[in-house]
Write a protein that binds this DNA or RNA. Structure first.
Lengths: 206, 206
DNA sequence: CAACACATCTTGACAGTGTCAAAATACCAG
DNA sequence: CTGGTATTTTGACACTGTCAAGATGTGTTG
C-alpha cells in the first residue's frame, strides 16, 4: 500500500472495495476528459459500475464530491508551491519568478480542475466543506508568508503583506482565469504576460 | 421613446408587444434576485407570462440569451469607463485610480451579472455570440488604450501596452473574482486592496 | 375583402439532471 | 447462526434545456 493510498483512502469499504476513492478517480477523469459541466453523478456512478444513488453513501451530495476533488487539487498545488519555495538553491527573485510561472503552469495544465477549485459553486454561500477549508486556507496563508519574505528581501513593495498578497494573487488568478475561460488571453501570450507581471511587481527592475 | 429603448429594443413585435426585451428585463431581475444558477428558461418564461418555449423564437437557446444579457453589461461598463476616462477635470493619476475603483465597484454592485459577463460558459468553445464579441472586444481594446496613455504619462511601467493591460486587467479581474466568489477577500477589505493595487502599479509612488 | 405567407406562441414530448424514500443486499460482531 | 449495520439498488419526483408539430395572430398581396 503506497503512501498516496494512505492519504487519499481513509477506510477500505465493504462491497465495492473502496467506492469513495474510486469515485474521486473517475470524477477527475471525467472532468479532464470533457470539463466540469460534463460531470454528473449519474455518469460518474455508471463509470464506477454502481447505481445512481450509490455515491450518496460516501458524499452527502454533488457539492460534497466537488469539494473533495477541489481539496485534492489544493493539496497538490500546495505541495508544488512549497517545494519550489523551500528550494535552497534559488534566490528570492528566482523564487518569485518560479511562483508566478508555476501558478500559471498549474492553471494551464489543469484548467478544468482549476475552474472547480476557484469556481464560485463550491465557495459561495456555505457550500464549502470543512475539509476543503482546512486544506485551502493554509494554502492561502502560505502565499502571504511567501509575499512577506519577498518584501523583507526588498524584492517587492507594499507594507501590509496580506494586502500585497491579495493583489499579487489576484493578478495571477485573474490572468489564469482570463486565459482558461478563453477571454482575451490565449495560449501563445501566457508566457509573455507572466514575464510582464513579474517585471511589474518587482521593485527597481533596473 | 427613450434613447435606451432605441439601443436595447431592435424591433417591436407582434403578440406580446415586445417579448424579447421583456425577457431580458425579467432575466436580469431573476439573476439579481437569486443568482445566475437560479435563471432557467422556464422560470423566465413564466415570469414573462408566456409558455416555456416562447423564448426560443427570440433567442436560439439559453446560451444566446445569456450572451445578450452579458452584452448589455459590457455596454454599461464601457460607458462608465469612457465617462471617467474622458473627464477633462481628472489627472492621469486620478483616472487610473478611478478606473481601478470603478472596476471594483461595478463588480461589487453587480456580482451576478459580472459572474455571467466573465463566466466561462458564454466564452468557452464557440459559445460567444457575434453580438457579444462585437460589444466586448472594443471594451477590451479601450483598456489597452487607457493603459497606453498612462504609460505615456509616465504613470505606470512596462513597454508593451497590451501585455501591461493584460496584467492590470488580470489583477482587477482576479481581485473582483476572489471577492465575488467568496474566496479569501471579503467586502470589508475590498477598498484597501484596491488602494494597495493602485500603489503597487503606479511608478515611483514617493 | 379574401387568401396566403409568415411570425409568434402553445402543447406535448424526450432525455437528462440531483436527490429522497424504501427495499434489498452484503458484511461483521455476538 | 443471528441480528444489526453499512452499503447498494430500485422507484420516484421535480426540475432542467430543447425539439417537433400544431394553433393563433399579423401583415401583405392578389
Amino acid at each position: 500500500m503506497s503512501l498516496a493510498n494512505v492519504i487519499e483512502i481513509p477506510r477500505p469499504s465493504y462491497h465495492h472495495g473502496d467506492l469513495r476513492s474510486a469515485l474521486l478517480v473517475a470524477a477527475k477523469d471525467l472532468i479532464a476528459e470533457a470539463g466540469i459541466d460534463n460531470l454528473s453523478l449519474r455518469k460518474l456512478a455508471e463509470r464506477a459500475g454502481v447505481s445512481r444513488t450509490a455515491p450518496y453513501h460516501h458524499f452527502s451530495g454533488k457539492n460534497d464530491l466537488l469539494c473533495a476533488i477541489a481539496a485534492q487539487g489544493f493539496r497538490r498545488r500546495h505541495r508544488e508551491a512549497m517545494a519550489t519555495f523551500d528550494d535552497p538553491r534559488l534566490t528570492p527573485e528566482e523564487k518569485f519568478e518560479a511562483y508566478i510561472f508555476g501558478y500559471m503552469q498549474f492553471a494551464a495544465d489543469n484548467p478544468e480542475e482549476y475552474e472547480l477549485m476557484f469556481g464560485r459553486s463550491i465557495w459561495k454561500q456555505e457550500n464549502s466543506t470543512q475539509e476543503l477549508r482546512d486544506v485551502a486556507y493554509p494554502c492561502f496563508q502560505h502565499q502571504v508568508d511567501m509575499v512577506r519574505s519577498w518584501q523583507q528581501a526588498g524584492l517587492i513593495t507594499g507594507d501590509n503583506p496580506l494586502r500585497t498578497s491579495q493583489v499579487i494573487w489576484g493578478a495571477v488568478h485573474g490572468i489564469a482565469k482570463l486565459f482558461i475561460d478563453g477571454i482575451y488571453i490565449d495560449a501563445g501570450q501566457i508566457e509573455e504576460v507572466s514575464r510582464c507581471a513579474v517585471r511589474m511587481f518587482i521593485q527597481n527592475p533596473a
